[in-house]
C-alpha cells in the first residue's frame, strides 16, 4: 500500500510506542483524576485547595509548554536536588570526621528518559481534566444510593467500590472517552522531547527521504485507526452500561 523506504519496522515500533505512552498515561491520569475529584469533594480545606490549584494551573497552561517545563525543568530540579543533597551530607560528615573525602552518594547527574517524562507529563495534564469529569460523575450519583449502602452496614471502601464507582463510571464514560481521544493525540507532543514515537520517526524519515507527505499521512492514518477503534469500543461500553440506566 505505502512504500515506507525501509522504515516499516522502525515505524511499527514507533506506532507501538505511541500506544504504550498513551495507555500508561491514561492509567496515571485516571488515578490522579479520581484522587483529585475525591479531594475536591472532601471536607478537608487543604485537600480541596491542593486539588483546585492542580486543576486550575494545569488546565490553564498549553500542553506543549507544560511538557517542556516538566521535562527540562524537572531535569534541572532533580539534578539540583541530588547535588544539593550530596553537598549537605558531605558537609555534615566532614563536620564529624575531618578526614572525610567528598563522595557522591546520589548520582550527580540523573537523566530522565523521555519515555518516562512523556508518560508522567501527559498523565499529569490529563489527570486534571479527568478530575473534572469524575467530579461531575460522582455528583450525579444520587445521595440515596450511598445512603442505602450505609444503612445496610457497608464500610466506606465497600460503599465506594461496590456502589459509587460502578455508578459514577457510567456518568463518567462519555467524558472519559473524550479525554482519551484528546490524550491519544497529545502523545504526538512527546516527539519534541526526543522520544522515538511514530511522529519523531516520521520526521526523521521524511528528512532523509524527502517524502514528508507519505510519512505524515501514514502517521495520520495510524492515529485515525487508534481513535476509530477507541470510539467503537466506547460506544459499546456506553451501550453496555446504559441498559441498566435509569
Amino acid at each position: 500500500m505505502f512504500d515506507l523506504y525501509g522504515y516499516q519496522d522502525i515505524f511499527l515500533k514507533g506506532a507501538w510506542l505511541t500506544l504504550q505512552v498513551a495507555l500508561l498515561s491514561l492509567i496515571l491520569a485516571v488515578a490522579l483524576g479520581l484522587l483529585a475529584a475525591l479531594a475536591k469533594l472532601s471536607h478537608s480545606k487543604i485537600l480541596t485547595s491542593i486539588a483546585t490549584i492542580y486543576t486550575t494551573v494545569i488546565r490553564g497552561i498549553p500542553d506543549l509548554i507544560l511538557m517542556l517545563i516538566i521535562f527540562f525543568g524537572g531535569q534541572v530540579l532533580i539534578n539540583n536536588m541530588s547535588y544539593g543533597f550530596n553537598e549537605w551530607i558531605n558537609e555534615v560528615l566532614t563536620g564529624y570526621y575531618p578526614n572525610h573525602e567528598w563522595t557522591s552518594y546520589l548520582p550527580d547527574y540523573i537523566d530522565i528518559s523521555p519515555y518516562l517524562a512523556g508518560i508522567i507529563t501527559i498523565g499529569f495534564i490529563f489527570g486534571a481534566y479527568m478530575a473534572e469529569t469524575f467530579r461531575g460523575a460522582i455528583l450525579s450519583v444520587s445521595k440515596g444510593q450511598l445512603e442505602a449502602a450505609t444503612a445496610y452496614g457497608m464500610n466506606k471502601y465497600k460503599r465506594f467500590f461496590r456502589i459509587m464507582f460502578p455508578q459514577m463510571m457510567r456518568h463518567a464514560l462519555p467524558g472519559l472517552g473524550n479525554n482519551w481521544l484528546v490524550l491519544l493525540k497529545t502523545t504526538a507532543l512527546v516527539s519534541i522531547i526526543g522520544l522515538q514515537d511514530m511522529v519523531k520517526i516520521a520526521g526523521d524519515a521524511s528528512g532523509s527521504t524527502q517524502k514528508p507527505f507519505t510519512f505524515y499521512l501514514v502517521v495520520a492514518l495510524v492515529f485515525l485507526f487508534y481513535t476509530s477503534v477507541s470510539t467503537a469500543f466506547l460506544k459499546w461500553a456506553e451501550h453496555k452500561y446504559s441498559i441498566r440506566t435509569r
Binding site: 440515596g144 444510593q145 450505609t150 444503612a151 445496610y152 452496614g153 456502589i163
Partner: peptide, 16 residues
C-alpha cells in the same frame, strides 16, 4: 446497622 434494615421513601435500590 447490618442488623437493622431500612426501607426508604425513595426506594434507593442500587440502580446498577
Amino acid at each position: 446497622r447490618s442488623r437493622l434494615a431500612m426501607v426508604f421513601q425513595g426506594f434507593n435500590l442500587w440502580s446498577h
